[in-house]
């Protein structure tokens, strides 16, 4: 059931802009979540709450730990410590596929469409509770034909909504970057999630498609789902988010409404101070090559 957006926003606006602030109706609550990579604390979150029924943006400079936090919350990575719950159900040590079945579904920064499956097959894969996905019943079509038809019609509706219906029979590998993002989002909806987590939905999308993507994200909220997304594009964050959480160096440094956060000195500091320790994994290859070259030269000179 859709939440009343206006009243939800008002309730949020009244909250203090403190990191880890308590929300009126949280869908996700996490405590003391830490994850280290080779001595470096990638994530060190003391307390986090995601409000139900609104769009929350997770922002921060490169290497702030946003994607790692996503991975931890959805069971794709295991934290060193911490506990978190979805709808009051603890998710610590719950495997990724169970997290998804509970209604918490994510997309990926580097889109994971299945290139060698057609668009409609990608969609059908998203449906849960399929009888035909069990080994023995799958052998006889009679066991799963009716359900497959029902899934297909639901998938076709979603494809039409996301304007992918013309691509229905094409291999997903033939889609453009933006279309892949749309397909991934539509496929996630086949799971019928309560909370949908989008990792950089705008990355690599051409400007023409951005506006329609924004509309789709808003429509997710308007049909009653909670949205959490990671984004770099500040315009997008300002446009559609109801609440913003800012991360830097693994920690939550600020929270608030988009307007309040943009003006927050802590946020400005976090972004300005971030240039020096950019995450290696997110550097492009050329820069990496140059860095390695420099390191070799430095060692050479020492010797």
């Amino acid at each position: 059931m859709p939440v009343d957006i206006t009243s939800a926003r008002e309730a949020l606006a009244a909250l203090p802009n403190d990191p880890g602030v308590r929300k009126p109706d949280p869908i996700v609550v996490g405590d003391d979540i830490t994850r280290t990579f080779g001595g470096l604390k990638a994530v060190d979150v003391q307390h986090i709450e995601i409000q139900r029924g609104v769009i929350t943006a997770l922002i921060g400079p490169n290497g702030a730990g946003k994607t790692t936090l996503f991975n931890l919350l959805t069971g794709f990575d295991v934290p060193d410590s911490g506990s978190w719950a979805f709808n009051d159900q603890s998710l610590a040590k719950v495997p990724a596929y169970k997290v998804a079945r509970l209604g918490m579904v994510r997309t990926f920064q580097l889109t994971k469409v299945l290139s060698k499956l057609t668009v409609i097959e990608n969609m059908r894969l998203g449906a849960t509770g399929q009888r035909g996905e069990k080994f023995f019943p799958s052998i006889f079509k009679a066991f799963w034909r009716a359900q497959e038809d029902e899934i297909t019609s639901r998938a076709d509706d979603l494809l039409a909504r996301f304007k992918l219906d013309k691509k229905r029979g094409d291999f997903a590998g033939s889609l453009s970057g933006g279309q892949r993002k749309l397909l991934e989002m539509a496929r996630a909806l086949m799971v019928d999630p309560e909370l949908i987590m989008l990792d950089e939905p705008m990355a690599g999308v051409n400007p023409a498609l951005k506006q329609s993507l924004l509309g789709h994200v808003k429509s997710l909220r308007d049909e009653g789902r909670t949205v959490l997304f990671v984004e770099h594009d500040m315009d997008m964050v300002r446009d559609i988010s109801d609440w913003v959480i800012v991360m830097a160096q693994g920690q939550i440094v600020a929270e608030g409404t988009p307007e309040a956060v943009m003006a927050d000195q802590r946020v400005i500091d976090a972004y300005l101070g971030a240039h020096h320790d950019a995450d290696l994994s997110e550097m492009d290859e050329e820069a990496l090559a140059a860095q390695v070259e420099a390191e070799i030269n430095a060692e050479e000179n020492e010797a």
Binding site: E285, E286, L288, A289, V292, E295, I296, E299, E300, A303
Partner: peptide, 21 residues
């Protein structure tokens, strides 16, 4: 450890991203 070539080998070996390019 001592020669430029060796260091380059280790560097390429350590960074799959680099060897891919």
């Amino acid at each position: 450890t001592r020669t430029r070539l060796g260091k380059a080998m280790r560097a390429v070996s350590d960074n799959p991203a680099l060897s891919a390019s």
